[in-house]
């Protein structure tokens, strides 16, 4: 696969005198697994917010699936995000009063129609079909993150976007989540993940390093991609 699903052209984000992102150029092909790394304040979150249609760049263009979204208003960005992006959060952000399957169905509800059968299938994909009717408080951190992944996947997004998806997990659960990403990647899902964790960053097909809002390194890990996964497993 070599179709460009995402392209950032000379993207900058400026807050007053601070340049959170400075003239970023980045292309991501459909089916790629990209990790974004860098120290705190390097612009990782700003970049992921722009890619996830939760923010707009001050300068430059963001082309998502062939459409320039850099000048869209909030309502359009919401619609685009709903249709094209699946979000995974460090803090999981499940709705406390809904069960696991209902949390997945929420994303369907805002997208189109809730369908419990499909939601159960998504939970089965992350190995949680037996915990479908539990409330978030009754689930472990790893289980909550898997529900979050199922929710992100339910509407078949073009990009799965994770902001520190393993940041709140222990090693065992981190391995489970990374394994899920690997399977999704095998299925052709485009994955972009922001992480602090070098081990999680290393398992991606490609890794970019941000510093002071600039890409300082763009590493193709295709050669070691399979090896890193084998080592983890």
């Amino acid at each position: 696969m070599s179709d460009k699903i995402l392209e950032l052209k000379n993207v900058s984000k400026i807050y007053g005198s601070l340049k959170a992102l400075a003239d970023i150029n980045l292309s991501v092909n459909a089916g790629d697994w990209l990790s974004i790394m860098g120290p705190s304040g390097s612009g990782k979150t700003t970049m992921i917010n722009i890619i996830g249609c939760m923010d707009t760049p001050s300068l430059g263009n963001v082309i998502l699936d062939g459409v320039d979204i850099s000048k869209e208003n909030a309502a359009n960005l919401t619609r685009i995000r709903r249709n094209k992006i699946g979000l995974i959060f460090q803090q999981f952000h499940l709705i406390s009063y809904l069960t696991a399957v209902e949390n997945v169905m929420v994303a369907q509800y805002y997208h189109s129609m809730p369908d419990e059968e499909e939601a159960m299938e998504a939970l089965a994909k992350v190995g949680l079909q037996d915990r479908a009717h539990h409330l978030p408080a009754q689930l472990s951190g790893g289980e909550q993150q898997r529900v979050c992944i199922a929710r992100a996947l339910i509407n078949s997004p073009q990009i799965l976007l994770g902001d520190e998806p393993t940041g709140n997990l222990d090693e065992e659960n981190e391995a489970i989540v990374v394994d899920i990403f690997r399977r999704l990647h095998d299925e052709g899902v485009t994955i972009i993940i922001v992480t602090h964790d070098p081990e999680v960053g290393d398992v991606a097909q490609r890794k970019i390093i941000l510093e002071h809002g600039k890409i300082v390194n763009d590493i193709d890990q295709s050669a070691t991609f399979g090896e890193a996964l084998k080592l983890r497993n």
Binding site: M54, A75, T78, R82, F89, H93, S96, A107, Y110, R151
Partner: peptide
């Protein structure tokens, strides 16, 4: 606030 933000992040329109 966080729950509302999440719903909006998932693509919910304000009116919904």
């Amino acid at each position: 606030k966080r729950e509302i933000a999440l719903k909006k992040a998932l693509g919910a329109e304000n009116k919904l």
